[in-house]
Amino acid sequence: MPEVIINGPEGRLECRYMPAEASDAPTALILHPEPDKGGTMNNRVTYALYKLFQARGFSVMRFNFRGVGRSQGVYDNGEGELSDAATAMDWLQAQNPSSRQCWIAGFSFGSWIGMQLMMRRPEIQGFISVTPPAVTHDFSFLAPCPASGLIMHGELDEQVPPESVEKLVERLSIQKGVNITVDVLPGANHFFTEHLDPMIERVEAYLNDSINEDDFDPLA
């Protein structure tokens, strides 16, 4: 799990990067939860997503937003963090010029940043959004949502009730050919404390169903 330091908008960004064996393997960027509330790239949900994409044959990267861990800078309420994510994706794509797929995945705040990045980067083919903060953050920028993806949520999430996520999806303008799947995991709380493994299993099943036959399948 090699450590990588890249130049970010406010100085260095601390990253972990695992390249795939195949040169045309898909790429995935994983984004962590609220930096101002102790979220880091080592968050258990973020780490589990990273390991899942790695096992699935992706070249995968996670990193600390500015002001977290060894990343320089200070928390910027999302604007700067979006720039951090764009920089990380630039680096990831530069390392994988033959890749034919690009995915974004994030947990909580990370999912909000990831979906904003998706609006700016048409090469992103799919997304995994775990407990998007639909109560506290504005998702109106998804007009329309440009790529298909999975929203994963816990049935007993008290911080972001599942109904708020369902209302968010209902309000979204979704272009033709784009499908947003909402999967609510029974019994799970906001952090998937006792349900991390079944959550990851559902994300894996979604990935297996979503990789097009015409695209590179690292497990074929």
Rank of each mutant, 00 (worst) to 15 (best):
S83R: 10
D84Q: 07
A85I: 06
A85P: 04
A86E: 13
A86T: 09
A86L: 15
A86M: 12
A86D: 02
T87S: 12
T87F: 13
A88N: 04
M89G: 03
W91K: 05
L92R: 07
Q93G: 03
Q93P: 00
Q93C: 14
Q95I: 02
Q95N: 11
P97L: 11
P97S: 09
P97M: 07
S98L: 15
S98Y: 03
S98I: 01
S98A: 14
R100F: 04
Q101F: 00
Q101P: 09
Q101N: 10
Q101C: 11
C102Q: 13
C102L: 14
I104R: 01
I104L: 15
I104W: 00
A105S: 11
G106Q: 00
G106H: 01
G106I: 02
F107G: 01
F107M: 07
S108H: 14
S108Y: 11
F109W: 14
W112S: 02
W112F: 09
I113F: 13
I113N: 11
G114M: 08
G114D: 02
G114T: 04
M115Y: 07
M115D: 08
Q116R: 15
Q116E: 13
Q116P: 05
M118E: 01
M118T: 12
M118A: 13
M119T: 15
R120S: 10
R120A: 12
R120H: 09
R120M: 12
R120L: 15
R121W: 03
P122S: 13
E123L: 10
E123A: 13
Q125P: 00
Q125Y: 12
F127C: 09
F127N: 01
F127A: 10
I128H: 01
I128E: 00
I128S: 01
I128W: 07
S129L: 14
S129Y: 06
S129C: 14
V130L: 14
V130C: 10
P132M: 09
P133K: 08
P133G: 09
P133Q: 08
P133W: 05
A134L: 09
A134S: 15
A134D: 06
T136P: 01
T136Y: 13
T136F: 14
H137W: 11
D138C: 06
S140T: 10
F141V: 03
A143V: 00
P144Q: 10
P144S: 03
C145T: 15
C145V: 15
C145G: 08
P146S: 08
A147D: 00
A147P: 00
A147N: 03
A147M: 07
A147R: 13
S148L: 08
S148Q: 12
G149M: 06
G149K: 05
L150W: 06
L150T: 08
L150K: 11
I151H: 07
I151S: 02
M152E: 03
G154F: 11
G154I: 07
G154M: 09
E155P: 05
L156R: 15
L156H: 07
L156V: 04
L156M: 08
L156I: 00
